[in-house]
Design a protein around this nucleic acid. Structure first.
Length: 402
DNA sequence: CGATCACAAAAGCGCAAATG
DNA sequence: CATTTGCGCTTTTGTGATCG
């Protein structure tokens, strides 16, 4: 196919898809089947990938709310949803603050206020309000495009459908959807009683509840939401992060009560220690503390690097570790045919979750750590999910067992 | 020019829904 | 009813760019 032919077909596809979008979204009266629509979109995508130079500025693949083959629609975020850089040591935190001071050319006398707030272990959402009313709720997705979960958020009762006071015309509120530990345990008891599947942890339970096709199921789950930042806003709420949070609270959102404003690194670390000490009693899971530059004008000047803002840092809690016995090593065949060795472990509790498998990543990893069947090993949960073998403790091994 | 940094891609787990 | 697919979350890894 020539470029000219491709260009002409892309033009006609753009027109056709726009027409059907309008029928589907605007009047809720589609004139072709979903499958036929999907075929148009797929054709458009195929042509675009064959002729990247021909991607139109009005390309359907770039548009908001383009429905996909099945499940939830896609939503393109007005502003990208970023992730956070991580820090682990006190030194990382000091470096973070120093880097910001340097970037902003602040003198030692200039105040640099940073906020500290718990990093909730849930899923981030972007809630879009127009005229004070919720019009769209979307998951983070890859940061640029997420899933439309509006219908489920409407019934979840976690965030207001209508904002109190006089909100800006357009306001995107971002925050974390999560499930309380108590609600998680109660849900699992109910699931158990009904012979249904048990959820592994509150985050997965929240994610699963949100992805329900039937909003009635979502409505029956107790989901909660902490607002922690803004996306697109037709007018700023305040000049600082703390004041923005207060404004969000006044509009009807839950705001995490442990957020603090600090003016030096020592008090950041104090807050971190305090939140860490309170962690077990919070009622919900957190996996660290997030520091943010308080002043919005500073935030803007700092901008972002890669997919994370320069003005924020996640101070992670140390990974929880436990000791157990390596019973066996299996080779697992992945979806793409990749081979992954998996450690079969004597079950052990790490961070409230019973772990019996851990990834060994690849053969080199096994050799490097000299891991063999029968070893006593230390495992840890990296991040949230994947347990891994950190090191080998004992040297007592059955002969020749790799 | 070697070492570090940034970034994308790939992988795993748990889940829900689609598929066969 | 079992398998596959796709998503959210996270880390690892390979590669390319940049810095000293």
């Amino acid at each position: 196919m020539s470029e000219a032919e491709a260009s002409a077909e892309l033009a006609s596809l753009a027109g056709a898809i726009a027409f059907h979008d309008a029928r589907y979204h605007g009047d809720d009266a589609p004139v072709i089947s979903d499958a036929d629509y999907d075929a148009l979109v797929a054709r458009n995508r195929a042509l675009e990938s064959a002729f990247p130079g021909l991607v139109r500025t009005d390309s359907p693949s770039l548009r908001v709310g383009t429905p996909v083959a099945s499940g939830f629609g896609k939503v393109r975020h007005a502003k990208p949803m970023l992730s956070l850089n991580n820090g682990f040591t006190d030194e990382d935190i000091a470096d973070f603050a120093a880097r910001i001071r340097r970037f902003l050319s602040l003198s030692d006398e200039d105040e640099l206020a940073l906020t500290a707030e718990p990093k909730i272990d849930g899923l981030s959402l972007s809630l879009r309000y127009e005229g004070g009313r919720l019009v769209q709720a979307a998951t983070r997705g890859d940061g640029a495009e997420g899933e439309d979960v509006t219908a489920n958020i409407r019934v979840a009762g976690a965030a207001p459908l209508e904002l109190a006071g006089t909100p800006p015309r357009v306001l995107e509120v971002r925050g974390e959807l999560y499930m309380d530990r108590a609600d998680f345990l109660a849900l699992n008891e109910a699931q158990d009683a009904a012979d249904s599947k048990i959820f592994a942890n509150p985050r997965n339970a929240a994610a699963g509840s949100l992805r329900q096709k039937d909003p009635a199921v979502t409505a029956s789950r107790r989901l909660r939401f902490f607002a922690y930042s803004l996306g697109e806003a037709s007018a700023p709420l305040a000049a600082t992060h703390m004041e923005s949070l207060a404004a969000l609270g006044a509009m009807g959102f839950s705001i995490n009560p442990l957020s603090r404003r600090c003016t030096d690194v020592a008090s950041l670390l104090d807050t971190y220690a305090g939140i860490g000490a309170a962690r077990a009693d919070l009622g919900y899971d957190i996996d660290g503390v997030v520091y943010k530059v308080d002043r919005h004008d500073y935030q803007e000047r700092l901008g972002q690097v890669a997919r994370a803002p320069r003005w924020a840092l996640a101070h992670k809690f140390p990974a929880e570790q436990a000791e157990t016995t390596l019973n066996d090593i299996d080779i697992q065949v992945g979806r793409t045919g990749a081979l992954t060795p998996v450690a079969r472990l004597a079950p052990v509790t790490v961070g409230g979750v019973v772990v019996s498998n851990a990834t060994l990543h690849n053969e080199d990893e096994i050799r490097r750590k000299d891991i063999r069947i029968g070893d006593r090993v230390v495992i840890q949960r990296a991040g949230d999910v994947i347990p891994q073998v950190v090191r080998v403790i004992t040297e007592q091994r059955p002969a020749d067992s790799t």
